[in-house]
């Protein structure tokens, strides 16, 4: 079925208000109910979000875009998607992982999380851009992790002997954006780290979110600060000003 036509914006006084919000305002009605056009648009958005939640990560395709870096693979104890959704504790624990010789200054974990679509689309871009901003760093081979929650990075980072771990993970899809990526940075990763000991950069996507290149700039800044101050989490967040980092006038610490 073809998409139903939207109302003519010239005759719609809601058009100006829609410039201020993506909210589904001024939808009209059919009796008390929504018009069919809106019902189907909503169902399509929900379907895309659900597909993003349940889509498996295409590991081979992700490995290809990480070239020339050869990726390691890791998987959590959540063996399937249903278990993953029900048992976040299993998604935080490592079942198996390829080995690499450390130690490293930092490790990057590309984790499916709740949206493999987000990782597929944006994680490699953030990884490559961050690496360009970290010359001289000893960086572990990138780790592609499946069935992963954020805290899985703690065990992966510890195994690699990395001083910092950055987990690039798919965020819970919303109706408007099914492919938003988040990054969680943890100093001295090891099992048992609390969420308050991490720094987060969220809302990374290309539909009006934080662009991957800017996210990488923020991440590299946080990584340098974290290593020099030997911490991540609340203590680091207090000093860093993400707004200033994201501003277009911001001069990058090193180009």
């Amino acid at each position: 079925m073809a998409e139903l036509p939207a109302p003519d914006p010239r005759s719609d006084p809601w058009a100006r208000l829609r410039q201020a919000t993506r909210a589904r305002i001024g939808l009209g009605g059919c009796g008390d109910a929504l018009p069919l056009r809106e019902v189907l648009a909503f169902q399509m958005a929900h379907a895309l979000a659900r597909d993003a939640v349940h889509a498996p990560l295409d590991v081979a395709a992700l490995e290809a875009v990480l070239h020339p870096y050869a990726a390691l693979r890791a998987r959590s104890r959540a063996a399937d998607r249903g278990t993953y959704l029900r048992r976040p504790d299993l998604g935080r624990r490592l079942e198996a992982m390829d080995a690499a010789e450390g130690p490293f200054d930092a490790a990057f974990v590309l984790a499916d999380g709740l949206s493999a679509t987000a990782v597929q689309r944006h994680a490699a871009a953030v990884f490559h851009a961050a690496l360009r901003r970290l010359p001289g760093w000893r960086i572990a081979p990138p780790v592609i992790a499946t069935g992963a929650r954020v805290a899985l990075g703690d065990e992966i980072g510890a195994r690699l002997g990395a001083r910092l771990v950055a987990v690039l993970i798919g965020e819970r899809p919303g109706l408007s954006v099914p492919d938003s990526l988040g990054v969680y940075l943890t100093f001295d990763p090891r099992p048992g780290r609390r969420d308050s000991e991490r720094n987060c950069i969220s809302n990374i996507h290309t539909a009006g979110g934080l662009a991957p290149e800017l996210a990488a700039a923020k991440l590299a800044w946080l990584m340098r600060e974290a290593l020099s101050r030997k911490l991540t989490g609340n203590g680091l967040k207090d000093d860093a000003d993400p707004a200033a980092l994201a501003a277009p006038t911001f001069a990058l610490p090193d180009g």
Partner: peptide
């Protein structure tokens, strides 16, 4: 209630 059931 939120507009169109979608909290953005």
């Amino acid at each position: 209630c939120v507009p169109g059931a979608d909290d953005i």
